[in-house]
Design a protein around this nucleic acid. Structure first.
Lengths: 219, 219, 219, 219
DNA sequence: AATGAATGAGGGTTCATTCAT
DNA sequence: TATGAATGAACCCTCATTCAT
């Protein structure tokens, strides 16, 4: 039976797989050109489908966007849980969180400038999703405060630091290409080094940090 | 008489002033909602005009965008000249340049996510302006290399560092409000401290640097 | 006093002269590009004026068209009177009429495709002017009948003949240029020879005809 | 089965049929009112469609015009081939060509004042199509020269003769109505008699010619 | 599930026309 | 008289969305 289930996917599984492919394609297109400059025709063509066919998987274009946004939020909170579990201090948690988030976003959704398009969300989605995003940002700021308190992060304005980091991250899809100089892992690692130095109270030690690796040795 | 000539602006001066107001309003709207989500009606209404009236000042919507972009590039190269003239080493030059750029962009064009919309430019403008932007980014990378060479900037990948910094900067209009917690000068100063720490070989020294103070006094 | 009146034209005379220049320019433009493809800006620029200035001479664009049309009709009826007075038979009258009409239309109004634009006239003007044009066409047909009756024109359908001739004439502005191979007089003469042969009962004699010259020697 | 395939047109055939209907409707409208005075709404309403629906069949309004123009050119060159094959001398060829052209143009495209709108063509189409039209006119002039050489056409200026004939033809849609006095065949025949007399060296013989009868039986 | 046809709303642009200066 | 500014209507075109097949 298991063999069969692998060999011949059920109708629902096929549907779900196509839905997933559509979501990824939409995310990639939104990242490339922005939500408004992306037509359903564009997305459909890249999938070898017709515009009308998309409506079997999503009720409308806005939903594609909010699904991307929601996916980003899922990743964000997964990153947060991951960081809370494994991090040894504020800075370590923050870096782990960002690292996890960036690498998965790049691989799954071509990273998420989608977030740039928050104004394109319908009011209902907007309220819900922006609230979630704000919760995420609040959590990140809390990590900064935690780091400042435990001495792992230099004195700074948590709000500003988080804005700076998120800016760098959300900018990635504007220049990163999977075919380019870096893999998503390399990019993430290098970027984390920069952030780490920006935050560290002892930057020399920061350089020794192995970001994304098995263990983070805080000061 | 000279007083009178100042007091009563000529028709040309009035025209130019309105054109300038339109450019600013367009930049602000593009920053808020993106190029494609901004209709000429939106811009016109905010100026108390009709859509058609805009065509007295700009030949088409695309030109509004490229004018914003071009303005950003003017500021960028002014910042570069300023930094080259006054900076004492690579890091100092880079920080001065970014500082000057950010502060003026915020004040003049609500900062420039406009740059995000490069894909919306017409081919002719795109070729010209993106080339200029690339020249600017190259110049910034050169400053990084200069800093690495003179020991003021820590070993790093110049490309990545510049992307990280530009990302932070271009993200500003998504959250900064003139009516908010920071003035443009305060924001700039705080942000430069972060960048400085990210780049510095001796972060302690970096904190002593008075960034934004002298750097922001452009011509 | 007369000297003065010649040397310094009165305000009214100046106005009338400019109005006349505007009418000609409009006619030329309409002939070149058609009524709808001609903007008031086009006309104004060719006159070294602003669009708004035209409104000192004509209340609106439609009036420019109907004035051209009316002018064409004046010329048409002048041609008719001329032909009635001097022609020696039906064919001679018809040819004289057409000849007079064509030459003056070319010189005064760049010839009148304006007539092609009858559908662009406002209802009020349309009723009036098309009625006049129909009267003119009727008169031409009468000349054909007269020619058939007096033996100077071959048996034919008057309606069709007139349509054929008017078609040729109204086509002129599509290819004739004042700077080209023919003068308006030469063109008219050659064209009349063609028409004359088309109508003549004795084409050999037709070739001897001196159209537009001092005397027409009918058969 | 073949019967069925004929009885129930395929989707492609339906599409093509509608496209053809649109082309005819557009041609008729352009002939009636001119290109610029014809809105897509006008055309669409006459077809019982919405403006936007037209875009399933043509990419833009200009293409409707150039397709009409191109169609006219196809007919023109078919007429030319036909005349070259069957004509016995220059005059006969010319008349056959014109006859074939006129009758088919009237029946297929309400005749083609479309040609009047050459200025409305986009540069790319303009270059191509006007070149074709010029080739057609050149071919017609060659026929005139051939006729002069073989004695079937009276001495005349080929350029002028062709302009005169084309003028008559292009004027047709301004007055001809399918519901009127003449059928397209009768009109064509009568018109050819006029042209024939205009060209003939022996007009008596010309009258004996049976124009339009055999000439109108195209492939 | 997939598609071609059709639509209605909306945006950019042009242009005749008006008006204050 | 002449003009720059402004407007509103109309147009072409795009696109998300719906529906019958």
């Amino acid at each position: 039976m298991a063999v069969w289930r692998n060999a011949i996917p059920s109708r629902d599984e096929l549907h779900e797989a196509k839905r997933e492919a559509l979501l990824r394609e939409a995310a990639a297109a939104f990242n490339r050109n922005g939500f408004h400059a992306t037509s359903l025709d564009d997305i459909a063509q890249n999938l070898g489908l017709t515009k009308a066919a998309l409506y079997h998987y999503f009720p409308n274009k806005q939903t594609l966007l909010s699904a991307c946004f929601a996916r980003a939020m899922e990743v964000a909170f997964a990153a947060l849980r991951h960081a809370q579990a494994d991090g040894v201090n504020g800075r370590d948690k923050l870096i782990r969180c960002i690292s996890f988030y960036v690498e998965r976003m790049i691989d799954e959704l071509s990273c998420c400038v989608v977030l740039l398009e928050e104004n394109a969300l319908r009011p209902a989605d907007h309220a819900l999703l922006v609230a979630e995003r704000d919760r995420f940002e609040q959590a990140l700021r809390s990590l900064v405060r935690e780091g400042i308190a435990d001495g792992s992060i230099v004195a700074c304005d948590p709000k500003l630091v988080i804005f700076a980091i998120l800016g760098s991250i959300n900018w990635i899809p504007k220049w990163f290409r999977h075919s380019g100089d870096w893999s998503s892992g390399e990019l993430t690692k290098s970027l984390m080094e920069l952030f780490d130095r920006m935050l560290s109270t002892h930057p020399a030690a920061a350089l020794a940090l192995e970001v994304g690796g098995s263990a983070a040795q805080g000061p």
